[in-house]
Simulated assay, not measured.
Amino acid sequence: MAAVRVPVLRHLASCSTRSLRASYQQRWAAVHDVRFLATTPHRRNILEKYRDKLARKAREEGHQDIDSLKAAYADAITTLRKQADVVIPPPTPLEPQPPSSLSSPPASPTPTSTSTSTSTPTPARPNPVPKQSSDTGIKPLASILDLPKASALPVKELTAVWRLHHATQPNSLCAVVPAATFSAMASLARTHPQFVLPVPHPEQGAEMHFLQWTWDAATRSATVLFTQLAEYKARGEYAAPHTTLTHYTDLAEDKGVVLMQGLVVEDRGVQVPDAQWLVMCLQRFYGGWDGVGGALGKERAEERRRLLEWFGKGDARFSVERLLEEAEKMG
């Protein structure tokens, strides 16, 4: 994927700093370099050696190609190679719990039968949803909420409970996303799992951030990892994300919503307002707000879609200037 983007990245690197500063002197004074590290020959040799096996596995799991398969397992690879960099979604807060008692109850010990009756005891009902973290380190939604009780609530009350759950965590993010909106975003993310987004700093310019989508079938979730572009350039796949967003689809069919929770890691150079801006940009560029704003909104949505596609294809028409212009219109 990195090799495909080289023409675009060279184009970005060749942009005149003077022209950018002139066109944005009343906006953002400068733009950070956005060139990525090239894939090393050693990693390419390994890929060629196992290409057939990887292609077969990609087809078996419904992915379009090896790059899509790698994107889906990127989080698991990072977890295994760099345990210290794994960011676990925020833990369940301490009491008090919301009045509806949606937090999952602790597992009850198996009772020891003292009856002398010859009747067959009723076996314990298995829990169909795992409550332990998957191999990727993602906690299943069943370990956060009591799903049967959550399913019984109206969407308005479920939204209130989900927000209350995160209210005591200053570095957390949360949202309740309409299932149709998330479906549209996920469809684009499957095709374009990587992108760059700017965070404006009026006194210092715009800082670029690299994002990557990953999927975890075990927890029925999709996670977005945000990393400073400078960090990604320096460390590649070992780069530590500063923000994670996990979208749970467990209630998408029954309630028509997807629950999102996120965590902004302390001391990684990003504040919660910056992460909130990135979340808004993520929704906009991945089609979450398509159709908003009439004809002008449709035109803007098409422009954002083109930038996303151009970046993914390594098309020279992608430019930082156009990306900043679209991001600024969302402010």
Rank of each mutant, 00 (worst) to 15 (best):
M1P: 05
V6S: 08
P7E: 08
H11W: 06
T17Y: 04
A22T: 12
Y24L: 13
R35S: 14
L37C: 10
K49W: 14
D52Y: 07
K53Y: 07
G62K: 07
H63E: 14
I66T: 13
A72R: 12
A72I: 00
A72S: 15
D75Q: 13
D75M: 04
I77M: 11
T79P: 02
K82D: 14
Q83N: 07
D85W: 06
V87W: 03
P89F: 06
P91N: 06
E95Y: 14
S100E: 15
S101A: 15
S104Y: 11
P105L: 10
T114E: 14
S117K: 09
S119T: 15
N127T: 15
P128C: 10
V129Q: 11
P130Y: 13
L141E: 00
A142D: 06
L147W: 06
L147A: 04
P148R: 11
A150F: 03
L153C: 01
L153W: 02
L153E: 04
L158D: 01
T159R: 11
A160C: 06
L164I: 04
H165E: 03
T168D: 13
S172V: 09
V176T: 07
A179G: 03
A179W: 01
S183C: 01
A186F: 04
L188V: 05
A189C: 04
T191G: 05
V196T: 11
L197K: 00
P200C: 05
H201I: 09
E203Q: 10
A206R: 03
Q212A: 10
R235L: 11
A240C: 07
P241T: 10
H242P: 00
T244A: 04
H247I: 00
T249A: 09
T249G: 03
K255V: 02
L259F: 02
G262L: 00
L263D: 01
D267E: 14
V270E: 07
V270D: 01
Q271N: 07
V272F: 05
D274F: 00
A275M: 05
L278C: 06
V279E: 07
M280S: 12
Q283L: 06
R284W: 04
G287K: 04
V292K: 10
A295N: 05
E299Y: 00
E302W: 00
E309S: 13
E309Y: 05
E309K: 08
D315F: 09
R322Y: 03
K329D: 11
